[in-house]
Simulated assay, not measured.
Amino acid sequence: MTIRIEHPSLNELYAYWDRKRGERAAPARADIDPVDIPHLLSNIFICQVAHEPRDYIVRLFGTALVEGLGRDLTGKSYSEIFPADVVARIHRDYDEVVEKCAPVTARKDASWSDKSHLHYELLLLPLSDDGKTVNRIVGAAYRLEPA
């Protein structure tokens, strides 16, 4: 699997996830141990996948993400936080992770929030407790400095 990631910390998270999955399509949530990656935690988030209807519930939202966005999303689903058009844009990347059980990376701006001046690189990685169904997504976002 080839994936283009520019930010060094996202490359490190991807390599960690890849080691933990081994021969499987995705590791389980229990395979991801925060003790292994403490220096990455402030930029990491974990979402639980709700399948019917499809939504994503934030279970962990790192402190750097809280600071950057100006609020903590922990415990909330995207559909209860954002308007429908924003949810649809966010869901596109997350749905791809779930449907393909594969990583997604992108460069984005935070136009979906009131922080449209923020630009970031995003990495979304599938987690599967049964080895078949993606039931969580671990991801990270790192702010890109203006060019």
Rank of each mutant, 00 (worst) to 15 (best):
T2R: 03
S42D: 15
A50Q: 15
T105A: 14
E52F: 14
V87D: 08
V98R: 06
L122D: 13
P146D: 13
D72P: 00
E12G: 04
C47D: 14
P83M: 04
I32D: 03
G139A: 02
E96K: 15
L144I: 15
R107A: 09
R24D: 05
R19Y: 10
R29K: 13
L127V: 09
L10S: 02
P53H: 02
Y16F: 06
L123Y: 10
G131H: 10
R24K: 08
F45S: 01
D33H: 12
S9K: 13
V86S: 04
A106K: 09
H117G: 09
R29Y: 06
I57G: 07
D93G: 15
F61D: 00
A25L: 10
K108C: 14
D93K: 14
E23Q: 11
H117S: 13
T2E: 06
R136C: 10
C101R: 14
G139F: 08
A88Y: 05
R54P: 10
E96W: 10
A84Y: 07
V86A: 09
A15R: 15
Y142D: 01
P38I: 11
L41Y: 11
L125I: 09
R29W: 03
A88C: 04
V97E: 05
D95E: 00
A88M: 10
P38M: 12
R54A: 12
Y16R: 09
L144K: 06
D18H: 15
E96D: 13
K20Y: 06
A147W: 13
R71P: 00
F61E: 00
P146K: 07
E145P: 00
V58P: 10
Y56N: 00
I57A: 10
D55Q: 02
G62P: 11
V58L: 09
K108T: 12
K20P: 11
H119F: 12
A25H: 09
A84V: 06
S116E: 08
I90Q: 02
D109R: 11
P38W: 07
G75L: 05
P34M: 03
K132N: 11
D85C: 01
H117I: 02
D109T: 12
A15N: 14
Y14R: 02
L65K: 09
I46V: 08
Y14I: 01
E67Q: 15
A15H: 14
R71E: 13
L122H: 10
N11K: 15
S128T: 06
A25W: 03
V104A: 07
D31N: 06
I137D: 01
A102L: 01
P126I: 01
A140G: 14
S113P: 08
E23C: 01
R4Y: 02
